[in-house]
Design a protein around this nucleic acid. Structure first.
Length: 115
DNA sequence: CGATTGACGTACG
DNA sequence: TCGTACGCCAATC
């Protein structure tokens, strides 16, 4: 039990940021990595998301997409359409796996959390 | 313990 | 514009 202490490691920081993403907004792995000071470790953000489902409370990883606004990790939500479904429920429009108006709904932690 | 992989992103040709 | 190569670091094989 005491194994899960406040281990503010890279992963923990990622979870904190993801949980701060407003509804109907999305961000990218690279943006989070950059905000944490590890712009080149975008892959680690994705890896953190992989373990996010073991977190409690669960992390809204569906709000995190790649820099293209493409749902690259949809296959990790149990069902591929689940990620898109969740975002559509928040008002996000899609063209296939591509988020429409992605740049507009993009939530950049380096800006939003910097205010 | 070494090699490979991975929900990314940038650089280069 | 498109395809390939590399880096980053942890987990898995």
């Amino acid at each position: 039990m005491s194994k899960q202490t406040q281990d503010f490691s890279f992963f923990e920081q990622v979870y904190e940021v993801v949980k701060l993403i407003p509804k109907g907004r999305v961000t990218s792995y690279g943006a989070i990595a950059k905000y944490l000071g590890a712009a080149q470790s975008a892959r680690m953000v994705g890896w953190a998301m992989n373990a996010s489902h073991t977190m409690d409370p669960p992390i809204p990883a569906h709000r995190v997409v790649n820099r293209n606004g493409l749902l690259t990790g949809k296959h990790h939500f149990g069902e591929p359409s689940r990620m898109q479904r969740l975002l559509e429920n928040e008002g996000v429009k899609f063209d296939g796996d591509q988020i429409l108006n992605f740049k507009n709904i993009f939530w950049d932690p380096t800006i939003e959390l910097s205010l």
